[in-house]
Design a protein around this nucleic acid. Structure first.
Lengths: 240, 240
DNA sequence: CGGCTCCTTGACTTTCCTCAACATCAGTGG
DNA sequence: CCACTGATGTTGAGGAAAGTCAAGGAGCCG
């Protein structure tokens, strides 16, 4: 299977062949987007569900003083919020970070998929819960971790999420994010991100160069950043 | 209506009399809890949905180094996550901050309520979306606002949320949170919270004493903190 | 009254930001 | 093939913001 979205949902719930087929059909015609293109802007009325098939995007908000905060990364396999269509207006924007292939599933189609296929509904709910847990984990990082711990935590998170969708493995993943975007996610200045990454590189914990991340010492990195993978919910409730 | 939970849901969707009755019935027997009692702990298997009828609680996580981060406040009218029961384990804990009256609705009852009453389902989904928007707003605050702006933003948020549930009004609300808990929510030290609050008091924007918050100058506070109430979604989509 | 929690203040230290300059790299068009 | 351009990464120096440590004050309750 090459579709990271389906691979991720299969990790969340047992999907029947029919369900997989329906998902394949729904994401069969992605559109190509260049880097730095807004998928949707704050204030817009929410439209279809976006599914990232290739490339990276991020949710962000720009403050009156011009600074920007990234609130979430969307990597291949990620979809955006389920029920967001109920709201009148987006409270943040989503932009691509790289070239991307994005499938769009209309609200109606999505509702129908979830009504028809309980496995899809279940998997989408779980994906949403994990996303929410991820938001909370970011709050913890921003509030109580040092800048170096914070960076280490983010890199580990992205790697583990990548493993789930098949875009990462064997300690390696493509990570085409500029230090500027990482800075806006970690709530720090770009120059400090640079120094912090050097520190992590210097300690031998990671390698990050030319858009490729290598986790050299996962154990040390986990301990140092206080990473607790609970929030990614790799073990799900088996019954019901 | 004295039930802040029902008042809040009514603000999100038009509820029929039947639906209101069903909600009243479901929350008729709250249990009383003292301050600093955990409702549920990280690692526990999720149980019923909790509904705060009186008093305050907060979601939090304690890091290996002993520091604590508060990720959300639950004030009267708030309920905790809808589908959390699908997960095997909580990724954070919830504790009371004050004496509290908490109703518990079993997973089965909640599922049934949402299946039977579309208005309740809709209102609960919207409440969840608003909670999620609130998490993102906290990320923005923690990442990109100065400590004083951050404090101002939090107080304004809590006040506006209180208005929605009827526990705040006319620039005034009960806010029984210690500076220590506020510090853990803002990701700063308690002594700095103290200084920042003094600054806000001194500027005439707020008054906060003995557990009562007064917003003296909402306009200045909004501008200063860069508060954008979008994320509370006071205007909802009317159709569908 | 004693004991607890919470709030307040001052002095010192650390972390991280800002500013500024420069290096590197990929893509573009001549 | 090379010069130009824009985005990105790197380095150093100085300063502002917020943390830590330590001590004392205020309020509340048994």
């Amino acid at each position: 299977m090459t579709n990271p979205f389906i691979m991720k949902l299969c990790g969340f719930a047992e999907l029947t062949d029919q369900e997989v087929k329906a998902l394949e059909l729904a994401t069969i015609k992605p559109r190509a987007l260049g880097p730095r293109k807004d998928l949707i802007r704050e204030g817009d009325q929410p439209g279809p569900v976006f599914v990232m098939l290739e490339g990276w995007a991020f949710r962000y908000k720009v403050l009156p003083n011009g600074s920007r905060q990234v609130m979430a990364f969307l990597m291949p396999g990620d979809a955006c919020d389920l029920h967001i269509g109920m709201l009148a207006a987006m409270d943040h924007s989503i932009s691509t970070a790289t070239h991307a292939q994005v499938a769009t599933i209309s609200r109606e189609t999505m509702d129908e998929l979830m009504l028809t296929y309980p496995g899809i509904a279940r998997a989408m709910y779980i994906a949403q819960l994990v996303d929410e847990g991820t938001l909370r984990a970011w709050i913890v990082s921003l509030g109580r971790r040092s800048s170096t711990e914070r960076a280490a935590h983010l890199l580990l998170e992205l790697y583990l999420r990548g493993v789930r969708t098949g875009v990462a493995g064997e300690g390696k993943m493509e990570l085409p994010l500029s230090q500027l975007v990482i800075a806006d996610a970690l709530g720090m200045s770009p120059v400090h991100v640079n120094r912090v990454l050097q520190e992590l590189r210097g300690s031998g914990a990671i390698e990050l160069r030319r858009g490729v991340l290598r986790i050299q010492n996962p154990v040390a990195l986990t301990a140092f950043s206080g990473f607790d993978e609970n929030y990614l919910h790799r073990r799900l409730r088996t019954s019901n």
